[in-house]
Nucleic acid binder design. Structure first.
Lengths: 254, 254
DNA sequence: GCATGTGATTGACAAAAATCAATTGGGAAT
DNA sequence: ATTCCCAATTGATTTTTGTCAATCACATGC
């Protein structure tokens, strides 16, 4: 069974890269680049497909490259001395990771693992470094992304301090939805419940029970990874009271 | 009684500003500026003294200025719909705040209040904005500060998820100390216990009991706001096991 | 079809923290 | 000194979450 995974890990031919060029324009950080800059970055990019479970790098590894998620999901995590795992972030398509190593002695400050089959773009950090110091506009774009990320972290910290477990799940679901829609909704949890639990800072058992309680209190319907409801406001009323942001909030899951 | 506080709020003459010029060189963000740039910033700066309790601005206020803490402590916080308060950060001397409004539609994303009598430097955001777009090196310096801040946030998120209440207090104390020293230590809590509790995401009662437990388990001595112990390692062994950073860690309190 | 492994759920219990209530203690104002 | 106020502590209790163990559900390979 292992050899099947190995074949998934193989690099595809670079000829498929052009299929993904347009993705570069959709990444917040790179949107502000000129087409020429993007072209330059793309010349040094490598496209990779990875199966679930693939460890991309470990905390402390030398960081020569950073990554861009094109499809699938990747988790960033750190491990404590007594063996616990802290999820730093869970990234969907369009997100960048590993780029902060630029400013941290070229060492990754966390480990990264593919959690749903993923297509990644791997780019040399040196190229980004070059472009940034050449172009102040890119540096400003990067600053903007950092500030936004920082705000999201603030928010998350607030959530773990002030929201109950069912509220945190409700908030998580809301961020998976387009909150501008008012009516009925339906979604699939994007990755394992165990991992969502860990992401939200709770045990799988607590997650399971909290989800049941969220169902009872808001009237949403659950079957496996599928979740449906009649109105987004059901969730918002329940979850957003313990949050300092106003609904609809702009944060995305995560 | 009110008029006494009012007198504390008064602006001092700008002539005292030169006394604080050397502080500018000690702020991570500004250290990388040229002396000329710092001089330019300083020309637009105003020095302010504020008493405990002074609210500097509220979340959503228009942000024309940012601040630099020269002495004292300032807390940044947000309030939820159901009336709870989330501490975003607590800042000692040398820290900058409000500068991220630069990238967020010039509105403060949190409120700020002086919690220990403070000397502040107030600077127009426009000046910083100018300098940054003129000088890529300053943008890079700011990026560096942002990345560092982001790391600290990651850390804090991890702590609230994985550490027990007594461990979080132990970690907090460690970050108040110079961890390079090995021997006996002694410190005063820098602000109210109630606020430290809130900062660490727990109730005042929990803080009080957790501090007692920390004392019992590590042998530190407590009288009021004064805390002493025979070896920093007492604390490190107890608190740092549930953390992914290695001791001594570089993070400072906050 | 069946065995197998993993993720998910459920129950019983323990631990941690929040909550409610009462009291203590120390500084500031008078 | 005395009063007042507020931070801090302590006790009793409830709520929440974690832990341990058993079971269930479901996809996969054989």
């Amino acid at each position: 069974m292992a050899f099947i995974k190995v074949s998934m890990d193989a690099l595809h031919a670079d000829t498929t890269l052009s299929n993904y060029m347009h993705h570069l324009a959709e990444v917040p950080l790179l949107r502000q680049c000129t087409p020429a800059q993007r072209q330059h970055l793309a010349q040094h990019a490598r496209l990779e497909h990875h199966a679930k479970g693939k460890v991309l790098f470990l905390s402390g590894d030398r960081a020569d490259h950073f990554f861009l998620v094109l499809t699938g999901w990747v988790k960033l995590y750190r491990e404590t001395l007594d063996g616990m795992q802290a999820i730093v972030d869970v990234l969907p398509a369009g997100h960048l990771f590993g780029e902060t190593a630029l400013f941290e002695e070229n060492v990754f400050p966390f480990s990264a693992e593919v959690i749903e089959p993923a297509t990644l773009l791997r780019l040399p950090i040196a190229v980004l470094s070059d472009e940034i110091s050449k172009d102040p506009a890119l540096a400003l774009a990067m600053l903007r992304v950092m500030v936004q990320y920082r705000r999201q972290q603030d928010q998350e910290l607030e959530h773990t301090k002030l929201q109950s477990a069912p509220q945190r799940i409700g908030c998580f679901l809301l961020r998976l939805l387009d909150q501008r829609n008012q009516g009925p909704f339906s979604l699939n949890l994007p990755y394992d419940k165990t991992l969502i639990a860990s992401r939200l800072g709770m045990q799988p058992e607590t997650f399971s029970r909290a989800l049941t309680r969220l169902k009872d209190e808001t009237g949403i319907r659950i079957s496996g990874a599928r979740i449906e409801g009649d109105a987004i406001s059901q969730l918002a009323i329940y979850a957003c009271g313990a949050c300092s942001s106003t609904f609809p909030c702009k944060d995305k899951a995560g």
